[in-house]
């Protein structure tokens, strides 16, 4: 019986295993291999030199990596602060409005990310919606609000809001009401309630939301291109340039490998500490 079940389970997972193997693992292996090749070759049939990794350090590509990771950290923190009250309201206060909020937030995903970012670009640019109106109505012109680091972070926060909001709301919904009431009854102030009960018990949701937004923001490209102009070059931009304009596949691969390793370690560490089952609803 158990054995039959196991075989059935394996057969069921076979299609996805094939897709993942060919579409996900194989390209990763290719990228990893290319990163070891001498620069500017287009074949894997060379002796590995790890030259690309030296270039990566010597030519300050690590700066782009730091910008990407740094902005991702800031965006994740801001999203956490921004989403906590809203997620709390969805999970505990206005439960009847939770569906309405969900639909509103999800609706923003119906329009492609690039189009939405172009919308912001038109709104914020010099002569755009904001500056143009300010100049026409009050005669006060100013430089556009685009092409700086804060606006890139704003873009990241704007685009990845749903990825923080929903896991967080799920995590907060897992906090038992009676534990909060008991803590209050035992003398805890609102602040103590937050520190002692809410944050630790919502930790799985916080971890999942933060990992999702961080991973997505660290690999984001459109925000820095469309809103940031050339203010800073993010790592995804460098990777794209290496593969296309510079025709240096090993360098692009080396940059990708570094990014994948850093993010992979973070996610593994984060998920190892979180009971994912409890978020899905099992093991409770």
């Amino acid at each position: 019986m158990d054995k039959a079940n196991q075989r059935f389970g394996f057969l069921c997972s076979l299609p996805i295993l094939v897709v993942l193997g060919l579409g996900f693992l194989a390209p990763l292996a290719v990228v990893a291999l290319y990163s070891t090749m001498p620069e500017r070759v287009f074949s894997l049939a060379n002796f590995p030199t790890f030259e690309a990794f030296r270039t990566l350090v010597e030519q300050s590509y690590y700066k782009s990596l730091l910008w990407s990771l740094g902005m991702a950290v800031v965006a994740t923190c801001m999203l956490f602060l921004l989403c906590w009250p809203l997620a709390y309201a969805m999970a505990k206060v206005f439960r009847s409005f939770a569906l309405a909020i969900t639909i509103l937030v999800v609706m923003s995903l119906f329009v492609s990310e690039n189009i939405r970012l172009f919308g912001w670009s038109l709104t914020l640019m010099k002569g755009g919606l904001l500056e143009g109106h300010a100049r026409a109505w009050f005669g006060i012109g100013f430089e556009g609000l685009l092409y700086n680091v804060p606006i890139i972070v704003f873009g990241l926060v704007y685009v990845y809001l749903p990825f923080m909001l929903f896991p967080l709301a799920q995590g907060i919904a897992m906090i038992p009401d009676d534990a909060r009431q008991a803590a209050t009854d035992l003398g805890a102030s609102r602040w103590q309630l937050l520190i002692e009960i809410d944050l630790p018990l919502a930790a799985p949701g916080i971890a999942v939301g933060s990992l999702l937004t961080f991973v997505l923001a660290a690999g984001a490209l459109a925000e820095s291109k469309l809103l940031g102009g050339q203010a800073v070059i993010v790592i995804a931009d460098e990777i794209e340039t290496a593969f296309t304009y510079s025709q240096n596949w090993p360098l692009g691969s080396a940059l990708s490998v570094v990014l994948i390793v850093i993010i992979g370690c973070l996610v593994t560490y984060g998920l190892a500490r979180v009971d994912l089952d409890s978020i899905i609803g099992r093991n409770r």
Binding site: P176, A179, Q181, A182, A183
Partner: peptide, 13 residues
């Protein structure tokens, strides 16, 4: 004053 809850409301973490 304080209360012992029906569910006990112990802190699971």
């Amino acid at each position: 004053t304080c209360m012992v809850f029906q569910s006990l409301a112990l802190f699971p973490h």
